[in-house]
Amino acid sequence: MTGRRLAAVAAGLLVAALLLLLPLTLRPYGLYLMSLWAVLTIAAMGLNLTLGYAGQVSLAQGAFVGIGAYAAALLTTAGWPLGAGLLLGVGLGLLVGWLLGYPALRVQHHYLAFVTLGANTLVFLVLRNEDWLTGGVYGIAAIPRPTVLGYPTDHPLAFYYFCLGVLLLVGLGLGLLLRSPWGRAFEALRENPVRAESLGIDTRRYTLLAFAIGSAVGSLAGAIYAPLVQYIDPSPFALGLSLALLLMVVVGGAGRFFGPGLGAAIAVLLPEWLRFSEGLYLILYAVLVILVLVFLPSGLVGLADRLSARARGEGR
């Protein structure tokens, strides 16, 4: 047991060093990629709560990233601080996410996938068509970077550390949430909703909560995405982002705490390695997802667990 703990601590230190020190050597584009990784990880962690822990399919996470991004963009370009945008984005995410949960109370898996998919498209249509609010296809430009605790984050390195800080806070918050009885109720809901209900777990309320919280975390990611790219239009928030986030969660390992981070890392890095063709990247990614599903139902983090267990002769 101590050997395992030691290995975990060593891995943790290595990742921490990588996240803290590597950026010092990177040029702006590398810093942009690492910031993007942090943002995508946050969004995927939110989806992991809804899908991986509570077992509720959502194909609308990208729309929530969009809601958060527009909330932050609209408020900060109007002169408000980013904190206000974050609050508005998270508030909207909670509200819309809660509403999105209602269909989940009535219908099962596959229907739910369609309803959330439809919701994603509706949000996209609103972002594209309501020019008076969102600027339509022209989007919103010149989104300012925030000043955090007196430090401006205009430099890519400063903004990256800001993203990393938010990621750590979100990770800590979600970690505590998942270890609380709420987290256990979410897992009970995923494992066996009928039994959970018979044990006094109000499955309706927890289903709505799972959607609301997971979606709000997605919106939070969006609210940091806006100042990262400093220009947003509706196109990134179409169905494609929702599908990509879903695949990140699955590839990393649904219901695994560190799965989204790994899935997002692959999603950000793979296209860089395969720079010569964006299309080929998506093809390989799709093949990877299918392979993971068929051969590694618990995702890559699950694979790492099994390998480390086997290395110590604990394999079953």
């Binding site: 709420w182 256990r184 109720a185 897992e187 009970a188 494992e191 066996n192 309320r205």
Partner: peptide, 27 residues
Amino acid sequence: QIFPKLKVRENLLAAGQEHRGSMLSRL
């Protein structure tokens, strides 16, 4: 009807947790 992926202890905790305290105290 059990929660197969949860540990035995967690199964029992899940079975008892909603019977005391409030939603907020559970969080």
